[in-house]
Nucleic acid binder design. Sequence first.
RNA 1: GCGGGCGUCGCCAAGUGGUUAAGGCAGCGGCUUGUGGCGCCGCUAUUCGGGGGUUCGAAUCCCCUCGCUCGCCCCA
Length: 441
Amino acid sequence: MNQFKSLRGMVDVLPEQTSLWQAIEGVAREHFSRAGIKEIRTPILEATDLFARGIGEATDVVGKEMYTFSDRGDRSCTLRPEGTASVVRAAIENGLLTQGGQRLWYEGPMFRYERPQAGRQRQFHQLGIEFLGLKEPMNDAEVISIAWHLLNDLGLKDLELEINSLGTESDRDAFRTRFVSWLESRRSELDPDSQQRLKTNPLRILDSKDKKTKVILESAPKLSELISAESRHRFLHVQQSLEDLGIPFQVNEQLVRGLDYYDHTAFEITNSQLGAQSTVCGGGRYDRLVQELGGPATPAIGWAIGLERLILLMTQQANQNPLGKSAQLSKLKKPDLYIVNQGVDAKRKALVIAQKLRDAGLRVELDSSTASFGKQFKRADRSGADYAFVIGDEEVKTGQAPLKYLRDSSTKNKEVSTEKLLHLDDLESLISTIHKEQNIH
RNA sequence: GCGGGCGUCGCCAAGUGGUUAAGGCAGCGGCUUGUGGCGCCGCUAUUCGGGGGUUCGAAUCCCCUCGCUCGCCCCA
């Protein structure tokens, strides 16, 4: 018996978790709508070249992590490894950029062929925003602020915001030359990975985790010292705005990020509880990407939140603090009413009543088993419903049925707790009774 | 791609060569033939991720394989 299993790194989100996903999405939508950010939905599959050009051939994402295959027309297609390139492509293709600044958000699955580990899957979900055609430092602060406040509103604790400025492309060219020649002379002291990067992507040596390399870097030339006055001024402006907003941050000169398209502001929001994959949100400014992808020169900035990591964190923090916001958002919605029913006529009636009550907006669970009343009450209790409505053949005969409150802790086992006899056909009074009692309890 | 740990019921688990593979949770049935939360009783793995080997005998030892997991790399 060979059971089917999901592919490696592809994870099912089960009903127990989906309510939390929905809650997060709801909070995020609200934040976006308040900030005038509109949703965009783009295809999951794109031409491979879009990512190769957009993200950069030398990056790990493009070099070894893409899900790429040929379709029946022999076109090279790739499941998107991130959202930005697709959004930019869609904006160019549909002429959005001729209509002034665009504030966009997206959410959906992304794919990277990597070895799964805590906080990392092959199919994962990102929620992100992209501001296109907005070049001011205040936009950088605004974009970061939206992420910060969203995460805080979700109840997350112990978040750290790190920012850095990568300057412009020419800033980095100037730096790279100095940096590489300085490191060349100490080549043998570097870890093998960094030695390799001297050729392929020297800037990434900056955030090497290797201890010895880190020590060497302390005395190496700093990017911050070599960027132009204009870039430096811009970065200070962003910092000033963050201070105005009361958002605590740390400047991390080591922060480089692995996607090629960033200029100026780069940032990450992290939490140490996540272990090795500590970044919940990452982003930055990308002023060259739109043009690189064939559009008009358009400055832009955005970020993405990894939803699985966010959920990991929220779940952890909800366990630590059951009264916190994260815990509240994680709670499953309970039914308002559970209909206990037995007998042929009663079941016919119960089905119809359940539907009518649902139409009226109540959350109703209907027992469809032939189990004993005792069994059904047990299920009613477990369902978390506050009320049980009891319909048997007797009730059908007399036209009256008891509505029973299940959450009265003062009544003991076997003792019949508060019941109210209600007319079966008078659903109005059933609904209003439930609403009324909900206010009392 | 590289390194460590682990794979026994839906979930958590005991078992480290010897007749029928503990237990707990959940599920189902009953005690209570129309009233739950507590309690009690019963049922639920011919089988220990899969394949091969060693052995009179393997969940337990060996080999291969698959998967999970943690870390490195990288990133959300």
